[in-house]
Design a protein around this nucleic acid. Structure first.
Length: 461
RNA sequence: GUGGUUUUAGCUCAGUUGGUUAGAGCGCCUGAUUGUGGUUCAGGAGGUCGUGGGUUCGAGCCCCAUAUUCCACCCCA
């Protein structure tokens, strides 16, 4: 058999011990805040039925779904007639019924509908699991990445929006990242579309203005005029989305510009509610900004939408996002259950923390606290006493291990101590038959003879 | 899906207009060091140059295909 170079799929990564420690630090920080705000954990399967996933993320999203090939003789389904039509959608349907989850919100909506009788509403759940997208990898973009979601379903109250913004604020404060939380409202976008050209152009407008801070005013107007927007319409649009001032001034101005749109006014009202209360519940101010050009791609959002980006660092894409979706469960047959949720992008948060060197120095790598080094070859000594020492340490909750490899007879302690120092094990316990135990601190080099009790006492602290 | 880019030792990278046995630093192994690591010194191992074709007397270097890395667009966490 030919030797094969091992590899992993494009856009996926392995994580070594240090990386796992850092990722866990982020997850723990997020989870603690979720719990503090009354959210309960759930987990859902890696794969979902494609019927659950398809159509929820827009056309672009559907293309990015990872599909799982059916088991068995699926090729039978592909008759020459079907193949000759060259209809990929149809043939995919016949050979693939499952896919990897694309986000955590849609599986959650499915979960809520399936478990509606056991759930007490409003239901607040959090979920931290990997998701998969068949995207081309690039900066801050992976094909397998983790999302940490908190969602509330079964309540229309905007107080949940408020809570979720505070969660963002607390988590990023806890991680030491300066962020800007942008907020907008789909209803405001609808109002803008209505006023500018007509509600049916909502998506076109949303997609175009979402790029405003990237390609600038000129880029956006060029794009829109190519799409058939008149100069007057474009001017009208910019007149609205470039409103300046503080938050309440901006909303007041917008009210006037969108006065002919019922829906737009409703959206403004929702934003006002949030801004009036945002700094009432947590002590530190939240860096919340309205951005009427914020659109977000996922097609299920209907109310407030959020996006979080780091203020410093080279990663310009968002590290969190979310919003309200009024009818996601409706698609699965449960109407009248509005939901609102936010998501943290673990992998991007990791990249930001790494770039800005914001990880705490003291992160535990989970290695042993002490290594037992026998000063004679392990094959030549009686093992029972050594194993008893090991057992005593472990029974006292001290992470410990025994050096098990062959040693140089002339320099019996060299290899074990080298091993310990390269694994950053802080103590070496030197065992010699018929001699007192010696404990060496490998950072200071200080070594002393101690009884077993003293050693346990010392390492426990 | 479109465009560009990367790939040479375990790691980070050199490698001149195609020309003999492909280099460096770090790491690793051995010794100086006769019961103890992180310093120093000496020595050593390790590469079919991403893969498959092609051009050439001759290819790490040129051409084609393919994989891969990173990046931009699209879109998004």
């Amino acid at each position: 058999m030919a030797k094969e170079k091992p590899s992993i799929p494009k856009g996926t990564r392995d994580f070594g011990p240090q990386e796992v420690a850092k990722r866990k630090y982020i997850l723990n920080t997020i989870e603690k805040v979720f719990i503090k705000y009354g959210f309960m954990p759930i987990e859902t399967p890696t794969m979902e039925n494609l019927s659950t996933l398809t159509g929820k993320y827009g056309d672009e999203g559907d293309k990015l779904l990872f599909k799982i090939l059916n088991s068995g003789e699926y090729l039978k389904e592909l008759t020459p007639e079907i193949l000759s039509t060259n209809n990929h959608q149809l043939s995919t349907k016949l050979i693939s019924e499952k896919g990897l989850r694309y986000d955590l919100t849609v599986p959650f909506a499915r979960y809520v509908v399936m478990n509606r009788n056991e759930i007490t509403f409003p239901f607040k759940r959090y979920q931290m699991q990997p998701v998969w997208r068949a995207d081309k990898p690039q900066k801050g973009r992976y094909r397998e990445f983790w999302q940490c979601d908190a969602d509330v379903v079964g309540s229309d109250s905007l107080l949940h929006e408020l809570d979720l913004i505070n969660i963002y604020s607390e988590v990023f404060k806890g991680l030491g990242i300066d962020v800007e939380i942008k907020i907008n409202n789909r209803k405001v976008l609808a109002g803008i579309a209505e006023v500018v050209k007509g509600i049916e152009h909502l998506n076109t407008i949303a997609v175009a203005i979402d790029k405003l801070d990237k390609i600038g005013k000129d880029g956006v107007s060029k794009e829109l005029s190519e799409l058939g927007f008149s100069d007057l319409e474009i001017e009208k649009l910019f007149d609205i989305i470039t409103i300046k001032g503080n938050e309440s001034e901006m909303l007041e101005t917008l009210k006037i510009k969108l006065q002919s749109s019922q829906e737009g006014l409703k959206g403004i009202e929702e934003l006002e509610f949030i801004f009036n209360l945002i700094n009432q519940s947590i002590n530190e101010p939240t860096n919340l900004k309205t951005d009427f050009s914020l659109a977000r791609g996922l097609s299920y959002y209907t109310g407030c939408i959020f996006e979080v980006a780091a203020v410093k660092g080279s990663l310009r894409s968002s590290i969190g996002g979310g919003g309200r979706y009024d009818n996601l469960t409706g698609i699965f047959g449960l109407d009248g259950v509005s939901g609102v949720g936010i998501s943290f992008g673990l992998d991007r948060i990791y990249d930001v923390l790494e770039e800005l060197k914001l990880f705490p120095e003291t992160l535990s790598q989970g290695s042993s606290k002490v290594l037992i080094c026998a000063s004679n070859s392990i094959e030549n000594i009686e093992l029972a006493p050594v194993l008893q020492i090991l057992g005593t340490l472990r029974n006292n909750g001290i992470a410990s291990e025994l050096y098990t490899e062959k040693i140089n007879v002339k320099k019996p302690l060299e290899k074990p101590i080298k091993y310990a120092s390269s694994k950053k094990i802080p103590y070496a316990l030197i065992y010699t038959e018929n001699e007192p135990l010696k404990l060496k601190n490998l950072e200071t080099g200080f070594q002393e003879e101690l009884s077993m009790e003293e050693i346990v006492e010392k390492l426990k602290g």
